[in-house]
Each structure stands twice: as structure tokens, then as C-alpha cells.
Amino acid sequence: MDLMAYKFHMITWLIVTAFQVLSVFFLWVAVYKNSPHAVINGYTFKEMISFMVMINIFNYIAFDGYTGDVISDEVSDGTIANSFIKPISYRVRFLATNLGVLGAKIVVFGLPMFTISYVIFALLGFIVIESIGTFLLSLLLFLIALVLASMLYDAISYIFGVLSFYTTAYFGLYMLKETTIQFLSGTLVPLAFFPAGMYKVLRYLPFAGMAENPVLILLMRDSPLVALQKIAIAIAWLVVIELFGALLFSRASKKVTVGGG
């Protein structure tokens, strides 16, 4: 890939991302203009905008579809057989890559993007920092929640990748995975907007820990105690999902049929 091509990609990526956030922004402007109340489901306009911007950045940093994509590619072109021979565990290989990518993304994109947005929102009064202590504590808890969110996403991505052993194709699975995560993690609309019954359940499902919870921690809407509870729930889910993934893999790997010879 030459230099021109390279610049082209970076610039388009920036523009495209900006446009995506923009449509959501105008929707919320209109919603609050049409609302007789200043607070909707616990969010003021300012809180909602900071939430939407942060959760979109968060999505980009924490979610990387690499794992599922690569597994399904290996299934469809048959190279998966070679992967089984390698000494390193199949799961560990993807987990390590994912954490590496996450680290790089945090440093290169996350740090500047979160910092700039945070500073702007704080200056505009969208985010109110009451004490430096709480702020620093939230920041620390947020980092932990971010890593957990990324690991949860990767674990689910892995399961969907392994499911492609059965379907030999990935497109349908990919759709299913992305949609479910986007919807139930609060990325499309905050979970507080869901009907009360659903909201109660969703708060305890792993999806909440994949986007909404970490962002709420960053925005200091949760007390440190609540934040810790949410982190504990995310860890518990991570263990359950990884165990399920391992079980599924040991079953599915017997299923793999490799074309050619």
C-alpha cells in the first residue's frame, strides 16, 4: 500500500466517524427540543450528549472484531487445521492479540480522544467534577472496566467465530453478534430508556458491562461502590463466557472438516 492510499484511509476514517456521531447528536437535540421536560429518563441534555459521544469513542476503542473475523477466515479457507498444530492455545493467541491492539488503541486514539472530549465537556459544564479524588478514582475504575469490556467483547467474538465451524460462513453470525451487542450494551440508546422490566434484567447481563457501565463510571454517574459492584459482575460474566467458549471449542473442533488435501 503506498503513501497516498495510506493517507486516504486515515482521512476517510476520521470523517466517517464524525458523521456517525453527528446524526445521533441531531436526533438528541430534536428530542430534547420536543420534550416538555428537561430531564428524560434521568438524563439532562448535557448528560445525554456527553454520554453519546463518550460511548461512541468507547465502542471504537474497546471493540475489535479481529478474533471472529480471523477464525471464520481460517475455517473457510481451511488453514484452521494448521492453527490446531501450533503449540500456543488457540484462545490465548487471539486474547493476546486483542489485548495488544487494545493497548495500542488506548495510547494512540483513546487517550487523546477521551481527553479532548472530556476537557471540552468539562469546560462547557456538561461534566461537573466535584472533587479531584473522586475523579481520579473514577478514572482508575474506568480503565479496569474498559479492559474488561474489551475482553468480554473478545470472548463473545471468539464464541461467534467458533460457531462458524458449524455454519462454515460468518456473515450471518457477524450481523447477529454486532446487533445484539450494540443494542443491549446501551450504545444505540441508554439502557434507562428501555421499559422498566427489561432495564432491571439488562443491568445484570454482560452487555451492560461492555459499554454503558464503563462510560457511566467515566462520567462519574456511579458512586465508586456501585462501580465496583458493576466491575465484579463483569468479571463473573467474563469467567462464565470464557468457560462456555472453551466448552464450545472442544465440541466444535471435532466438527471441523477441511477441504482439499
Partner: peptide
């Protein structure tokens, strides 16, 4: 063939974005 002189990693990606060396 002209290839940009690339630096490793995502940090390098940014450096490459602004350099004209190949």
C-alpha cells in the same frame, strides 16, 4: 514499486501519515 517507509505499530502509522519518505 514505491513503498512508504513505515514505522512499526499504531504510533508509527501516524508518523507515516505525515512523512513523505518512501
Amino acid at each position: 514499486f514505491k513503498k512508504p517507509i513505515r514505522k512499526e505499530g499504531i504510533l508509527g502509522m501516524f508518523a507515516t501519515l505525515f512523512s513523505r519518505k518512501y
